[in-house]
C-alpha cells in the first residue's frame, strides 16, 4: 500500500507539489495524470526516495521512505521516464547487478529474468551490450529490471513510451497479473485510453495540487477519461 500524506516539495520559490495526499491500496493500478510540469515526476521521485521533500510523509506498506529508505526501497521498483542504463554493461550484466542489489539467489533470478525477458521479447538480446540497444529495447530491459525482484509497489514514469505493440500488450497483461497478485501500481502517463482500460483508480494533478482522486469508474462516469481531463484542464484557462 502506498500512502502519501500532505506531500509538499519546493524548488526554490516554486512549489512543485502542493499538499498532496492519496492512498493506493494493494492490488490497485492507479494512473497519475496531469499536464507537462504538473508535478508527476517530482511526486514519483519523492516516493522513490530520489529527492527529499519539504513537508509530508510517504509510506510504503507502513515503512517511511524518508526515515527508513533502504527497507522501503526493497519493497518497490522505480522506472524513470527515460531509462538511462549503464551502456557499457551487457543486458544480462545489468540484470545481475539489479538482482545482486535485491539479494536474489541464482535460481530465483534465473526464473524471473527468463520469465519477463522472454515475455517482453528481449531475452535473446541480453548478451549484447546495452549501448547497442534501441530506445524500445532499453525500455524493455528497464521494465524487466523493475520486475525481477517481485516488488510490492511499482512506480512507473511513462512506462509505455518506446514499446512496440506486442511488448506494450504483454506489459499491460503483466501489470494486470501483478495487480491481481496484490501488487500496488502507481504510474504516470499521457496515454489516457490505455489508462482508462487497465487502471482501477485515477489521480489528476494540476499545478502541483491533486484535483481528482477516485476510482476510474467514478471519475469518468459516462464520458471518456480524455474528455474529463480536458474539461479539468480547461477550467484552468477559464
Amino acid at each position: 500500500m502506498l500512502k502519501i500524506e500532505h506531500l509538499t516539495k519546493k524548488f526554490g520559490n516554486k512549489v512543485a507539489v502542493d499538499d498532496l495526499s492519496l492512498t493506493v491500496e494493494d492490488g490497485k493500478i492507479c494512473a497519475f495524470i496531469g499536464h507537462n510540469g504538473a508535478g508527476k515526476t517530482t511526486t514519483l521521485k519523492a516516493i522513490a526516495g530520489i529527492i527529499t521533500y519539504d513537508n509530508g510523509k510517504i509510506t510504503i506498506n507502513d515503512v517511511d521512505i524518508q526515515s527508513n529508505p533502504i527497507k522501503a526501497k526493497f519493497q518497490m521498483a522505480y522506472l524513470p521516464d527515460n531509462p538511462d542504463l549503464y551502456e557499457h554493461l551487457k543486458g544480462i550484466e545489468y540484470l545481475n547487478f539489479i538482482a545482486d542489489v535485491f539479494n536474489l539467489g541464482a535460481d530465483e533470478r534465473k526464473k524471473n529474468i527468463e520469465e519477463y525477458a522472454k515475455r517482453l521479447e528481449i531475452y535473446n538480446d541480453l548478451i549484447d551490450p546495452i549501448s547497442s540497444y534501441s530506445h524500445g529495447m532499453k525500455q524493455k530491459l528497464a521494465l524487466v529490471s523493475a520486475l525481477i525482484h517481485k516488488p510490492k509497489l511499482l512506480l512507473l514514469d511513462e512506462p509505455f513510451v518506446g514499446l512496440d505493440p506486442i511488448s506494450s500488450h504483454q506489459f499491460k497483461m503483466i501489470l494486470q497479473e501483478l495487480a491481481d497478485a496484490g501488487v500496488t501500481i502507481f504510474y504516470s502517463t499521457h496515454v489516457l485510453d490505455v489508462a482508462e482500460k487497465i487502471c482501477s483508480d485515477v489521480a489528476i494533478i494540476k499545478q502541483g495540487k491533486l484535483i481528482v482522486y477516485d476510482t476510474m469508474e467514478n471519475v469518468k462516469g459516462m464520458s471518456s477519461l480524455e474528455d474529463i481531463f480536458l474539461e479539468l484542464e480547461n477550467e484552468k484557462h477559464d
Partner: peptide, 27 residues
C-alpha cells in the same frame, strides 16, 4: 554496433552488492 560472433552466454551469478558496484565502476 558491429555484433560480435562470440558473444558469451547468459549467466546468473550472485555477488555481494559492493562487488557488483565495483565491477560496474570498472566496466
Amino acid at each position: 554496433y558491429l555484433k560480435s560472433k562470440n558473444k558469451g552466454k547468459i549467466y546468473y551469478k550472485k555477488s555481494k552488492v559492493i562487488f557488483s558496484l565495483v565491477k560496474k565502476e570498472a566496466k
